[in-house]
Design a protein around this nucleic acid. Structure first.
Lengths: 405, 405
DNA sequence: GGGTGTTTGTCAGGGCTCTCAACAAATTAG
DNA sequence: CTAATTTGTTGAGAGCCCTGACAAACACCC
């Protein structure tokens, strides 16, 4: 059964118009071309179920909108008139992704196919600096990258900024807080130089999870993506969409009570996961200084790789606690997979065994495959890629968003 | 402007036809009539956004399909021609709900408005008896109830059976296991007397949660409904729809590790919630016999009400453990509400304080209102009501399902 | 009591979008 | 070169909603 308007099957859906129908069919055709190009109109017709005539009309509109291109006829070797190959336009609408990390700025442009075409990452100490200063530099970087993209024929149609902080559900460009940057209640529009290019903020962990799902087609549609940057957060992807919770606080894995009578946490509770698997805790247990300069994650990986016993013990302890918390997540959500991203991905070699052990011992009332737990494929590149892909996916889902220029 | 949001998975969505459009608009009109009747065609038009002409056509079809009735014109006192009041037909398509509990059978018929019109509940010891025997009795009860409904002009258009067990995601009428009944791999069609009236099984906790949401309009759209019948289960309602998890095992609250080094559980792990808040554990701690005849929940409530110290202590201990598990649920899912159903609803007076205490102490990194935790309004009637409402909601969501008799 | 204003429900005309059927175009096989 | 096959386009037709107009039914006012 297909639904014309909003996809959700519950109440509060509006009436459907013929424009909605057209919009959906444009998206369906575009999606088929994106997923299986090169494809002829007849191929699309056979695949999605619309008639060749309808597909022809839809493809014409997609070409007019600059989202699909038509190549020359390809000699297929089969009898019959050859089809004209269709492909998603790789020189047209594009998405700009931006990222502000504690130690870097990032910017990239992804074309409609989802391919990154421009990629920039610059080391920069952003922690504690005024938000306006950091945002001005980000805007400058964005302008550079956008110019590079324009030289490739790409037109930026949307901007998303990945930040290591809390972004409320409702739109408005507000970053409620980003502890590691020292931000509180930063409204992007107040600091962005050009009112026309203000990006929409989004939590970096969420974007990393979506990138993981979007960029590798065969991923499951319901999974938990754990990342440790700002505390420990989990992004919940349900049926291919991000689940934010009723107020946008879903996935707060770091404060699950792992050992109810454990050490007191900064949040006021006791025995939170962060007290075992947070950066501070791991550094302490492994005997490293609290405020280490440079890339502490790489340092931890280096020491663990060299067999440094306290580091290995700290990671094992963190892995066991993480396994406990993920047991709760599996029991509650029954995900297809658990993906460790961010810093955890780089430390996976030493974390995974302990996590696996706990899961195997505790997830017993349902089938559980150890392979369902795996490190992220994108690692640190996820959030920036996800930011750019957000725009691309939005355009793909509604090709009428852009004016028919 | 719009951020990542819930752009649902681009793939797996098919083309839209004009029938789909019509179907959706029929559902929208029917939904408006159901939610705000009595309503005139003009009222519906103004409310949903379709033109009066379109609404007229849609209402005509709904009347022809027997889903809406037209009353006489009502003198409203306002100037202008009075509208003709529309209402959902209370003598037409209906849903049959069935329930097999450990100690009872239930059957009911709900009309399209969602009102229960026939309601039967019979005490019956079902545990350990052959599934075929229990199902035959259920079928007999269903036939009686359906006959009563027919006398009221109701035509049963769908049958759902609430069972205290695991029902897989994929259809097929299979009850994988129902420990309290002693069932394993029971396929309903194999035991049901009449092949035309085989009901679709569904987990009773899920149905109880949906009933809670469906029957009281103002409920939140994302909540966790906890019930203790077969072990301890949580039904997760997300955006108004049931979330079953990737394989149908979501909401297995009973085996969340509450005290990782606690007593061993039958599942093989240690310190599961069931060891503290399960029926067996509460009975043991309160000093009652394990296999008590009759209604143990009522007995517990009676003793607690009388101030019986061991019982109060057992319930306090259960409440604290439940609070711990629910802390994990809140951290992960950020629900609008936590609803305690089933046996917990009847013991809420003595459980809630401890649960509230734990939640208040541990849910600290987000706003949390104590009122968000509350006992179920329906209590034990939820599952049976939900079973019948399932059919009603399905018909309301797609009025073209029934032939245009 | 009759006229006026207002609101309702319906009808005819038009536009949009898909389907169906037919056809020209382009290629392979023989 | 001819027949067969497949592709893409075109015109007719149907379904659905929108627009605008109109009769019907009521309250209000003189």
């Amino acid at each position: 059964m297909t639904v014309v308007g909003k996809v959700n099957g519950s109440a509060s859906i509006g009436p459907a118009s013929q424009q909605d129908m057209r919009r959906q069919n444009l998206a369906v055709v575009l999606g088929a071309v994106a997923a299986h190009s090169p494809l002829s109109r007849a191929d699309v017709s056979g695949r999605v179920g619309l008639t060749r005539a309808a597909v022809s009309s839809l493809v014409d509109e997609l070409i007019a909108r600059g989202m699909v291109t038509e190549a020359a006829a390809t000699a297929s070797g089969r009898p019959g008139r050859p089809g004209r190959a269709l492909a998603v336009n790789d020189a047209g609408p594009a998405g700009l992704g931006l990222e502000i990390g504690v130690g870097h700025l990032g910017a990239c442009v992804v074309d409609l196919r989802g391919e990154p075409r421009v990629w920039r990452r610059e080391e920069r100490a952003n922690a504690g600096r005024p938000a306006g200063e950091v945002l001005a530099e980000t805007a400058a970087l964005a302008a550079e990258v956008q110019a590079e993209a324009a030289a490739l024929g790409l037109r930026v149609e949307g901007r998303v900024l990945a930040v290591p902080g809390v972004v409320p559900n409702d739109p408005g460009g507000l970053v409620e807080r980003a502890p590691n940057l020292g931000w509180r209640g930063v409204r992007l529009a107040d600091h962005w130089p050009d009112a026309d290019t203000v990006p929409a903020p989004e939590n970096e962990a969420n974007l990393g999870a979506l990138a993981e799902y979007w960029s590798t087609g065969q991923h499951p549609e319901t999974f938990v993506h754990v990342s440790a940057e700002t505390g420990i957060g989990a992004a919940l992807v349900i049926d291919g969409g991000l689940f934010r919770g009723a107020r946008g606080f879903a996935g707060e894995l770091g404060h699950l009570p792992v050992h109810p009578d454990g050490p007191e946490c900064a949040c006021g509770a006791r025995g939170c996961l962060e007290q075992y698997a947070g950066e501070t805790a791991v550094l302490r247990e492994s005997g490293l200084a609290q405020h280490h300069p440079g890339d502490v994650v790489a340092l931890l990986a280096e020491r663990a790789g060299a067999g440094h016993a306290p580091t290995l013990a700290a990671l094992d302890r963190a892995g066991r606690a993480l396994g406990l918390a993920l047991t709760s997540a599996v029991d509650l959500m029954d995900p297809d997979a658990l993906v460790l991203g961010g810093a955890y991905a780089e430390l996976a070699d030493w974390l995974l065994p302990a996590v696996r052990t706990e899961l195997a011992a505790r997830v017993t009332v349902r089938p559980w495959a150890p392979e369902a737990l795996r490190p992220s494929a994108l690692g640190r590149r996820g959030p920036l890629l996800g930011a750019a892909l957000t725009t691309v996916r939005r355009i793909m889902a509604d090709p009428t968003l852009l004016p028919v220029g």
